[in-house]
């Protein structure tokens, strides 16, 4: 592919810069004046009540949802309707979903090698080598030949993380990666995410796992009704919340 076809990623500026971003679903104003800058290597946890627009916001970052006003810059590339920009950004940004969304008709290994082979045009042997490396990192290399339907939820989510990592992304987005899991499986997924954070990956994570937030987050963001209400470094955020809505929310999730 010639270089005129791809927008070049700029690695010097912030990883993500969102300014004055609004989004509507029909008449419904879901996201209101979102401003957020994420530095390289920064780990951000986003929390807030159900329906507050957390998923919608992080899905705007890789254009699974389209915003209508304001701008989103990822690695210096502005997200517009330009398909080439969208493709470039999607290659730089990995995403892990609440319900894993593995491809059920492919084996674990094929799930991991699919995008490197077809999108990055990597030779199959090399893609498999990289896939095995990441499957080992998430501690399930022995499951490579199985189909997703044969794994437990925690294992499936770790495969999903490995699948994203195989594209060698600069930024990882997590949308409630543990909320569909049983308690004993939550830890195995969180462990993988903690490892990833230690290696300096830029991470945006929607989660209500406050232990995880305290352990790895550089910043916690609280959203409600489509707005960013409060952001702070985790200890301050949990011990000394400023807004009433934040206090109410924290009392509800920490209360039981």
């Amino acid at each position: 592919m010639s270089d005129t076809n791809t927008a070049a990623a700029d690695n010097s500026g912030p990883a993500i810069a969102i300014t004055g971003m609004h989004k509507w679903y029909g008449d419904f104003h879901v996201l209101k004046d979102i401003n957020l800058t994420v530095e390289r290597g920064e780990r951000i946890v986003i929390c807030g009540p159900s329906g507050s627009g957390k998923s919608t916001m992080i899905r705007c970052i890789n254009r699974l949802e389209e915003h209508q006003k304001g701008s989103i810059n990822v690695s210096g590339i502005e997200l517009t309707n330009d398909v080439k920009n969208i493709d470039t950004i999607r290659r730089e940004v990995g995403m892990v979903f609440q319900h894993f969304n593995l491809f059920p008709h492919l084996t674990v290994l094929q799930n991991c090698t699919l995008a490197p082979i077809w999108v990055r045009k990597m030779p199959k042997a090399e893609a498999e080598e990289i896939a095995m490396k990441y499957l080992t990192r998430v501690k399930i290399p022995e499951q490579a030949g199985k189909f997703p339907g044969q794994l437990s939820g925690g294992q499936q989510q770790r495969v999903a993380i490995a699948r994203s990592l195989c594209m060698n992304p600069d930024i990882m987005l997590f949308d409630e990666p543990t909320s569909a899991l049983d308690p004993e499986m939550i830890k195995e997924v969180l462990d993988v995410m903690v490892d990833l954070a230690k290696e300096g990956m830029t991470m945006l994570c929607v989660t209500h796992e406050m232990g995880f937030a305290k352990q790895v987050a550089d910043r916690v963001i609280f959203m409600d009704e489509g707005e960013i209400i409060e952001q702070n470094e985790p200890n301050e955020f949990f011990d000394n919340p400023q807004s009433d809505r934040t206090k109410l929310f924290l009392s509800q999730i920490l209360g039981h």
Binding site: D87, M95, N101, F103, L114, A115, W118, S164
Partner: peptide
């Protein structure tokens, strides 16, 4: 399910690859 399309999109597969694979 919609999640399959989203997973494929998030991995950078274009429409043609998404349909085919």
């Amino acid at each position: 399910p919609k999640g399959q399309f989203e997973a494929a999109d998030s991995l950078g597969l274009n429409f043609y690859l998404n349909m085919r694979l």
